[in-house]
Simulated scan of single mutants.
Amino acid sequence: MPPPSPWTKPRTKPLWVALGFVLTGLGFAGLVLPAFPGTIFFVLAAAAFAKGDPRWEAWLLARPVVGELVRDYREGRGMPLRAKWIACTSIALAVSLSLGRIPVLAGQVAWVLVGLAGIGFITLWVPTKRSPTSRSQG
């Protein structure tokens, strides 16, 4: 039997819980700030809470919007189409509005490429979650 990981020893559990709260805060910021991802921080927070204290993981999963996002990710269901549109539009707007603040052309090109990479990831890599009504009609 392999030795226990140093990351799951009892003395590290409070660190995992603290990290979970930091990531949860970033996740909530991502729900209200355009072009700032929220879901990934909630997914990471749930993983940190799972290592630190499963009660906090259960608390996070019980949150109305957050719990559904994390469960959908864990189960490979993806994002609703509306959320994909909002995310891609937010990225495009954030990149467009901030281009004037980048004085160097190479920086502007890099920023546009980062935005396009984010949009490409969302549209091509993240599965589209089917709504319950579309499943029953098909």
Rank of each mutant, 00 (worst) to 15 (best):
M1H: 01
P2S: 00
P2W: 00
P3L: 14
S5A: 06
W7Y: 03
W7E: 01
T8L: 11
T8E: 11
K9C: 03
K9H: 04
R11M: 02
T12N: 05
T12M: 14
K13S: 05
P14A: 04
P14R: 06
L15R: 12
V17C: 08
V17N: 08
A18V: 04
G20R: 07
F21T: 04
F21Y: 13
V22A: 13
L23C: 14
L23A: 14
L23K: 14
T24V: 11
T24Y: 15
T24F: 15
G27S: 02
G27W: 05
G27D: 04
F28D: 01
A29W: 13
G30P: 03
L31W: 05
L31D: 11
V32E: 00
V32R: 04
L33C: 03
P34H: 01
A35L: 09
F36R: 00
P37H: 11
P37M: 13
T39H: 06
F41L: 02
F42A: 14
F42G: 14
L44I: 01
A45W: 01
A45K: 03
A46I: 12
A47C: 04
A48C: 07
A50Y: 01
G52P: 00
D53F: 01
P54H: 06
P54A: 13
P54N: 03
P54F: 04
P54Y: 01
R55K: 15
E57L: 10
E57C: 13
E57S: 12
A58Y: 07
A58V: 10
W59D: 13
L61A: 09
L61N: 10
L61Q: 11
A62R: 14
A62T: 11
R63H: 11
R63T: 05
P64K: 10
P64Q: 03
V65A: 03
V66I: 15
V66M: 05
E68M: 02
E68G: 01
L69T: 14
L69Y: 12
L69M: 15
R71A: 10
D72G: 01
R74T: 08
R77E: 06
G78P: 13
M79N: 11
P80S: 10
P80K: 06
P80N: 04
L81G: 08
R82N: 04
A83P: 01
A83K: 06
K84V: 09
W85R: 15
A87D: 05
A87W: 05
C88G: 08
C88L: 10
A94Y: 02
V95M: 11
V95A: 13
S96V: 09
S98F: 12
L99V: 14
R101T: 10
R101I: 02
R101K: 08
I102E: 05
I102C: 02
P103K: 07
V104S: 09
V104R: 14
Q108H: 06
V109A: 15
W111F: 15
W111C: 09
V112S: 07
V114K: 07
G115C: 11
G115Y: 11
A117M: 13
I119R: 03
I119C: 07
G120T: 10
G120E: 03
I122D: 04
T123K: 02
L124W: 12
W125M: 12
V126P: 09
V126A: 13
R130F: 06
S131R: 12
P132N: 03
T133L: 13
S134P: 00
S134W: 02
S134V: 12
R135H: 10
S136Y: 02
G138H: 08
